[in-house]
Design a binder for these strands. Structure first.
Lengths: 336, 336
DNA sequence: TTAGCGAATGAAAACGTTTTACAATGAGGG
DNA sequence: CCCTCATTGTAAAACGTTTTCATTCGCTAA
């Protein structure tokens, strides 16, 4: 029952003042080795465990950071969270994890809850930055970094990949395989990442190859497997005009695409080529294995957290806006 | 910049004492409506946000619970976490999430960190309860509930399904389809859940049908896709003696099994039947769709958290050891 | 010796709440 | 009209640390 044992009990046991105990606990060098030992023994004997809440109140640091993600049960965000947590652990931070479901009100509410809990910093991921949210971000008393979240109109610290160029590369690889019509199955266009970045990459690859843009080749999904299937089936209805190469905005949609194709009796990659986005674990759990754009979520999480620690430690920072490299992982859903 | 605004500032602004402000903030009914409004106005105007750390110190409650899981990036645990978080939110708690990687030392360390942070309770999930850990659990100053974690030798609050009977049902369904030899691809046997529960279910189903137990039909995996493939390939080497019906300990291994089979030119479910365990989202993202035992991780998380709140509120509790129902979801990897 | 100095220690004041113990005010009953 | 009892508000003591500032101690150098 080592609860209710305070620094004061330890001080009494070791016959020193609480200030000295505090010094020992915090590794302050100004303590005579013999005293240090005496205190340490008292700590061990009593099973003293410092109260982080009291510590937080006195020091105004909680060694806790808030993490807001859309939905931790999604493998994609879970990977991000793991990257964040690993680096947090490395720097002795804990994380308070919150799910926003991309709901703007909930996002603001969570932000305020976290600030109330006096977190030392926050890592945020969301699809669209509502302006009310940005306003709160700007007045936040603690630093906030954006992970895999677009930020072009503001200047908040952020970690991303270059989505436009990634999409460009993906589509180009399809074009290089001789396709003239490329299907694009995307998430909601309101989200900058889709509506501006990936879409722009898609179009620029087309233009570069002097291929016409045809609206009927782009179909909306909502990131899920089912929406991928549905989108592909819609494309299939185009008959002869149906594109034979598909770029899907997420791996999960890409799986849906492949299965829709297979269910319709087509062969991937012989009849249709498919390329996904994200390189989640799913990509290797399908036959054919999925060629995909790798968006390194774990790394984005890790780098975000590292960036946050740099800000917290007031370390020198080259740039607030980090762009991580991307690449295409060639597997079997495309012809090499 | 609504930081550094304290309850005292609000009190001054509203011309009342800080205790009155505290009453308003905490919804204490003993405040005259006119006063309440005056205080509320001051709060709004100043943008006052109560400091949860100070509150925690004074009240000895942090409205925060610790969650220890093996690895949040695994879809299985992520689902659990989501269930926990949803119910936590419902009861105004936040969660501090930690990954243990099933490392016994890390588990103990995390437990101590969380206790240091004065969490109001803890939800723990792990594969094997090391006795040192259990000792710490027993002396914990706050309640701990086990989620999807076996607990038979101790009497800690826990939420599980009946793994033995679930495995029994799965194997029986295979036997009912006429199979005499049933393969069992399992996770590490040191973990009670495998070595005792699921394994016992497997054997009892065999016995019940007067089928012989043959050791070469059970193969060890480590929960992953790759280990599932490998295990199936090992079984395949048995040639004619290879079981034509497989019960895999996790969905991910089941996917590996199916792909190993398909890669070897076999048809599922025509030549081989496969049944998985957990019913993760993966199950529907494979062809054929996976028949699987549903272990409702989200529900287990939600119920665990609910149980914890009951303990925290000192509500009446029927039983500490909750067993949730399981069932088999029939899909296409088995013949109906 | 002793003045002077740095290192080691201690005392006490924050930190921002909740909570307790009272005091003041107001209303109702005799 | 006074007394009592609610009701509402106030003051101050926790809560368990960190941190600042002062003090003491033990040496070194003069």
């Amino acid at each position: 029952m080592n609860s209710n044992i305070t620094i004061y009990d330890v001080a009494r046991e070791a016959a020193v003042s609480m200030a000295t105990v505090s010094r020992v606990v915090n590794g302050n060098p100004n303590v005579k080795p013999s005293t240090r030992k005496k205190v340490q023994d008292a700590i061990d004997q009593l099973g003293y465990r410092p109260n982080a809440v009291a510590r937080g109140l006195a020091s105004k640091k909680t060694t806790t950071v808030g993490v807001i993600v859309p939905d931790i049960s999604n493998i994609f965000f879970a990977d991000l969270a793991r990257g964040i947590e690993d680096v947090a652990t490395m720097y002795k931070y804990n994380i308070i994890l919150c799910n926003s479901d991309q709901n703007p009100e909930k996002e603001i509410h969570l932000l305020n809850t976290l600030l109330g809990k006096q977190v030392d910093g926050i890592i945020f991921m969301g699809g669209r930055l509502h302006e009310d949210l940005v306003r709160e971000f700007k007045t936040s008393p603690v630093p906030i970094v954006l992970a895999a979240t677009l930020n072009q109109d503001y200047d908040l610290p952020a970690v991303n990949i270059d989505y436009e160029s990634a999409a460009h590369d993906a589509v180009k690889s399809l074009i290089d395989n001789g396709h003239k019509r490329i299907g694009f199955i995307t998430g909601p266009l309101e989200q900058q990442i889709n509506g501006e970045k990936k879409f722009a990459g898609y179009r620029s690859a087309l233009e570069e190859a002097n291929l016409p843009f045809d609206e009927q080749n782009v179909v909306l999904g909502n990131y899920t497997y089912d929406s991928g299937m549905k989108a592909m089936n819609q494309l299939l209805e185009l008959g002869d005009a149906c594109p034979r190469a598909i770029f899907a905005g997420t791996d999960e949609m890409a799986l849906g695409v492949i299965h829709a194709l297979q269910d319709a009796g087509h062969q991937v990659p012989e009849d249709f080529e498919v390329i996904g986005h994200d390189n989640t674990r799913l990509a290797t759990m399908i036959r054919p294995k999925l060629t995909t754009v790798v968006q390194p979520m774990y790394d984005i999480g890790a780098v975000s957290m590292r960036l946050l620690t740099k800000i917290l430690n007031k370390e020198e920072i080259e740039t607030n806006d980090v762009t991580l490299p991307h690449r295409i992982e060639q597997r079997d859903s495309t012809r090499s």
